[in-house]
Amino acid sequence: MSTAALLRQRLVALFALALALLNFPLLALWDHEALVLGLPLFPTALFVLWAALIGLLAWLLERGAGDGASAEADAAEQQPPRHDG
């Protein structure tokens, strides 16, 4: 499978994850009156989840930023093992 197609599938999976995390019923897990480190639980949980999703997205997209270079690296890895003289 090409790297581009793999990235697309990962993004779709991340989208599905985000949809699940930010909606009922998973979101209801945080819906309590409580303070965490002085911050209200529900808004804090929302922001943390949000930031985590952005972090994952950034990681996925920036990692593959040099598509051409990574293809060459793949080819280099397929060389036969080094002779151990």
Binding site: L11, F42, L57
Partner: peptide
């Protein structure tokens, strides 16, 4: 409404997850 202002910004985040596609 408390946190009800947030969906308007979570939505674009969802859209951007698929932006590259």
């Amino acid at each position: 409404g408390g946190v009800w202002f947030l969906p308007i910004y979570l939505g674009p985040t969802l859209a951007m997850l698929l932006a590259w596609v």
